[in-house]
Design a protein around this nucleic acid. Sequence first.
DNA 1: GCCGTTTTCGGCCCGACTGTTTTCAGTCG
Length: 579
Amino acid sequence: MEGKNLTNRDLADTFTKVADLLEIKGEIVYKIVAYRKAADSLNNLGRDAKEYWRNGQLNEIPGVGKAIAEKIDELLTTGKLAFLERLENEVPPGLAELLKVPDLGPRKAAMFWKQAGVTNMAELEAAARAGKLRGLPGMGEKSEKKILSGIEAVSRRSERIPLGRAWPFAKEQVEFLRSIPGVVNAEAGGSLRRMRSTVGDLDLLAATTEPEKVMEAFVNQPHVFAVLSQGEFKSSVEFNNRIRAQVWVQPPERWGTALIYATGSKDHNVRLREMSLDKKLSLSEKSFLKEDGSEFLCATEEEVYKTLGLPWIPPEIREDRGEIKAALNKKLPHLITLDDIKAELHAHTTWSDGILSVKELAEEAKRRGFNVLAITDHSGGLGITQGLTLEKIQEQRKEIDRVQKEMGDSIRILQGSEVEIKADGSLDFPDEVLEELDLVIASLHVSLRQPREKVTERLLNAIRNPHVDIIGHPTGRMFPDREDADLDMDAVLKAAAETGVALEMNAHPARLDLDDIYARRAVELGIPLAINTDAHSPADFDMLHFGIATARRGWVEPDNVINTWRSEKLLRWLKSRNT
DNA sequence: GCCGTTTTCGGCCCGACTGTTTTCAGTCG
């Protein structure tokens, strides 16, 4: 492969492979951690690594030092990595996939290879079925069975769960835990509390002085498919819906340390523990352990952070992406909240594929406390949603005017459009029509699989059209099935910064597009953001908090988001963009 | 292999649970 076509993800995947094989080979853990950190960092970069490369700035990527920078250079130059090829000659590359099996780590993988001749997943399954694993050191019949069910779990289990699906289930579980006698508090932690767009499993925490009662109740829920482990402080299960969850139990006086532990991220927690050691304290989920062996308990998260000389850090930014340094310097962002939003600027009515009339939608928006609502039905070209024709736009304008009159000054209703960016890159409405509209969102829905240059060019076209105010759900991704379009996001962000067009953070949990990484980059570049629900029904307004949470993950502050602006400022901005 | 308001060398978090063990290794979060 030509090296310059490699994406951040390709590079990350390569280093993950290196880490997997080094681990099986038995290399020192810190080297492996370093490769994994670099891979993680590349996946969360928000800019194309090639840009760093061209400028000789690879070392500025967190976790990339001299050795890994040289390997990135080799990959981008030649498309290959000699180090990995040598490694694959030493360790069968098929062994890496064994690490996906639960409770099967590098040590066992190496043992299965060296002592049973296993070099890939299929051979592992055959060996387990033939009973060839049970005689190996540390392996019994149970372990062999576990391997087989683990292999089955790998193929059965879908990857990560979309936040929109995990969220309501987690709420149910928290309610259930709170209903258990003796439980004084319960919460969902993990990536769900950090509001990542997808969640691996649920991390639940309950505060009680009677842990065994909680464990019994938890693992005996009727919809539990399998109990994966059950102990004094921690149990984990898989439910019939294939969602896995673990629950930790601690007494209320340890709630603060426990909740921080359960919330993560792991990297954030490691940083906190390192800081603790500097203060001669050892931090765990239970307490701060002093050098004299006594414990210092924290019932709240605030106490834990305060002990370390930090203000409380919002869960959404606990990702070890600079939040601890910012907290130390009293430079934590003033993150946006749900209450800051005063306008919904992307909503559909019965004029296209929504289920509410203009009036009903306006009343719903008003009920939710919005000052401004933009009606943005689809343009006609998008076949699946019977969009508006040019004639219908005139009719709709009359209806909007009528509803505006009826509702008075309580809410300002704008006539907008979600105009389709067609496969050839042109917009679905001519400029004369766009000019008449109060607000224009341009979105991609079709031909997302075009070549990178082509899709990027379509988006740039829309960004450069002076009548376009917002680019809707810019990358086109949908959970769980649709990958984002293959886009040159650096070029998109650069063009947005130049033209001042707003980029949408679509709040629907199936989209969350832009994501947190690009949102943070957009803020750095001074690009205005628009957080919209894309409402097609009343219930869709409830999705707004997902968009807010994603924005918070991207360190977005209220003023970065046009939906927070006073209506005069917002309308002035819209007007200025039309000229 | 990375990293540095005590270090360019010597560090690099902490504990729970399982299955196999007579005291622990492996894995996970």
